[in-house]
């Protein structure tokens, strides 16, 4: 059966993934690379979150950095101002993000196409402005300092290596959870909404409720990423959660490839590494970054993952002829 072989392939993929995480975590000596990989992990979570919404359910969001920010500011405020343990702040911050997603999602997800894009954009901007202007709580434009490092009993996550494992552990768990949702009746219904919302409703899918659910799920994963980011760098500022950040998330999803968890990994890796490589261009950095975005979208609109696969298959076909 195809299903079984697909299952086996998935298992193998996850096993390899786990192996790569463990090996690179233990044997990588260079702390800079370790930290870079940790950032990739956080961005992978963001890309995964948005991919569930955009790639599977077909609902665009141009304001997703808001949930990332709610996770980061949530834990910052709770641990510093309210002296919460970070482990208590984590579920609290995620719950806040989910609640906000729920409330905002009800009116917003009625929109579609560009209008949905604009609704989410407006929401993201408002949250960003809130971070920037509510300075008594958030530290305002200059940022929030003094976020405590994570500790769990005797284990300190202050070291780069432990944090690396923490982040990638979260990535792995989120991957498996999302993969399971995708393979379930919920995932099928989401893809049905993507292919044809009216037809999905006509065969008995409660499209509105389902879109809302996946929006809330996506917000939760984004907030988790925000939490991990805040306790990694100890300092957050509104710029990290701006409109540009939302767009970067969308870009990760689209460049990596929609509707694929591995595409999220690829997109996040590329967009994290790209600025590192582009440092060499110094003041041409922005120009090159913009150019790459445009070129990929013009020539490989289905993302690098699928796009390169398509090219490979096409040349293969040509050669056999």
């Amino acid at each position: 059966m195809i299903i079984n072989s697909q299952n086996t392939r998935n298992r193998i993929a996850y096993a390899v993934f786990l192996l790569v995480i463990v090996v690179s975590g233990y044997f990588l000596e260079n702390l800079y690379y370790l930290q870079l990989l940790t950032f990739i992990g956080i961005n992978t979570l963001l890309a995964l979150a948005l991919n569930m919404l955009m790639g599977y359910a077909g609902q665009i969001s141009l304001g997703h950095a808001a949930f990332y920010g709610i996770g980061a500011y949530g834990t910052a405020i709770l641990t510093v101002h309210c002296h919460f343990s970070p482990w208590l702040a984590l579920p609290a911050a995620i719950a806040v993000a989910m609640a906000v997603a729920y409330i905002v999602g009800i009116p917003t997800l009625k929109l579609s196409g560009y209008y949905l894009g604009m609704g989410t954009l407006g929401f993201g901007m408002i949250i960003h402005i809130l971070f920037r202007e509510w300075s008594s709580i958030t530290g305002g434009a200059s940022g929030f300092i003094g976020i405590p490092p994570l500790e769990l009993g005797p284990v300190s996550f202050a070291s780069g290596r432990n944090y690396f494992f923490l982040v990638w552990g979260c990535v792995l768990i989120s991957f498996i959870a999302c993969q399971r949702i995708i393979d379930s009746r919920i995932g099928r219904a989401l893809r049905a909404i993507h292919d044809g919302e009216n037809a999905a409703a006509a065969v008995g899918v409660n499209t509105r409720a389902l879109k809302l659910q996946v929006f809330v799920l996506s917000a939760a994963i984004s907030a988790l990423a925000g939490f991990l980011y805040a306790h990694l760098v100890f300092f957050i500022s509104p710029g990290t959660f701006s409109f540009i950040a939302s767009i970067r998330m969308v870009t990760m999803v689209v460049i990596g490839g929609m509707a694929s968890v591995w595409g999220a990994l690829l997109g996040a890796s590329l967009l994290t590494l790209l600025p590192e490589w582009l440092h060499a261009f110094s003041e041409f950095e922005m120009v090159v970054y913009g150019l790459i975005l445009m070129l990929v979208m013009i020539f490989l609109p289905r993302g690098l993952f699928r796009g390169l696969l398509d090219i490979y298959e096409r040349t293969l076909k040509k050669n056999t002829h």
């Binding site: 665009i60 969308v250 950095e285 150019l291 975005l293 445009m294 979208m297 013009i298």
Partner: peptide
């Protein structure tokens, strides 16, 4: 652009905005 879907065009124009900002700088 062969398949002018909103999402593709959004990213292309966002890419252009970053590009032009870079040029401006």
């Amino acid at each position: 652009v062969r398949h002018p879907e909103p999402i593709v065009l959004i990213i292309i124009t966002v890419g252009a905005s970053i590009f032009l900002r870079g040029i401006g700088m």
